[in-house]
Design a protein around this nucleic acid. Sequence first.
DNA 1: TTGGACATGTAAGCCGTTACATGATTAC
DNA 2: GTAATCATGTAACGGCTTACATGTCCAA
Lengths: 185, 185
Amino acid sequence: MARGKSKSHFALLGILAEREASGYELRQFIAQSIGHFWQESFGQIYPALKNMEKKGWINSVAADLGMKTRRRHRITPKGRKVLATWLAERPTPEVIRNELLLKIFFAAHAGSGIITGHLKAQRLQALEMQKVFQEIASQMRAPEAVSAAYWRFTLDYGQRAVEAELQWLEDTLAKMPKVQSKKQV
Amino acid sequence: MARGKSKSHFALLGILAEREASGYELRQFIAQSIGHFWQESFGQIYPALKNMEKKGWINSVAADLGMKTRRRHRITPKGRKVLATWLAERPTPEVIRNELLLKIFFAAHAGSGIITGHLKAQRLQALEMQKVFQEIASQMRAPEAVSAAYWRFTLDYGQRAVEAELQWLEDTLAKMPKVQSKKQV
DNA sequence: TTGGACATGTAAGCCGTTACATGATTAC
DNA sequence: GTAATCATGTAACGGCTTACATGTCCAA
């Protein structure tokens, strides 16, 4: 499981390049900071950490805080080299699967009003996302670390993507009734 | 493999709801019409077709055209019911993984200029996509079948997504040099 | 005392890609 | 005759999610 081609390794390595962390903290950090374009589950994180230690990309030590065992993971110089090499490679094209679009494509075979319902639900979710982005953006004001500029780029991407999606949703919702009335003629 | 939860089944079923087709044709159609938001490989299509026949969602007959064997697949009434049921279900949230954004997020650990290169490569690809979309759009002029309206919605989504991405790419490329000079101070 | 957050891990199993195997037909 | 396209499948393997198992600490 996760033996070399998995990008999970590099996601973890990238975070460890700025701070040492436990598996649990890595999970949290990912969910909070890059969750809108990258996800990792425990089922991958823990095996990946073991694997990377074996390869010498990280050092892992069990630090006993109080009575809790908590493994702290630290990147090694070798790990930094591996990370830099990966960062230099061209991103491989993503496989995109958009279930909502698929359902719209087949909408002629769905009951009337169904797809409109999906679009409305998606609009609510998108508005929710927009709010979350705005909150993050407002907290990210002051001139921080070097990385902050890059973080802002990824946030900006998210904001624009949601913005574009919302506009498409509104426009498509406005066009839907016409299509359906046409169908009924 | 692909025993029930896979959405491949429904993608195939949706196409078969409008025309009978062979596995090979299904692959072609998917690549040409919904390829920008949905992909299927032969490794899934053929087993899925067998599976759906066993379930009674489709009928498959080996039609000998000349000397070639070619299995033609036709949707059954039961298949239509299954399709309609699936269409009525809310789309499950997609898992998004954007490698380019991940690399940008970690850009502080990459060699200078590397990420800018990725952005430029991505811009070229996006421009290519934009051209493809424009071509499809121009061929989709006349008032066609009922489904055509829905197909246009999915195309519209693609066009807006690329448009937004391109604007983000341009703006981000414009901001990159400043970030890097800051870093060198 | 009970529930929730903290914390680490394993196992099962699905989903999907890729590579392989095979063969007919068509165009150059 | 040979390469490309048409055409159908199988096998291996990898990646990832989900569910399970286990246990501590803290607050209401």
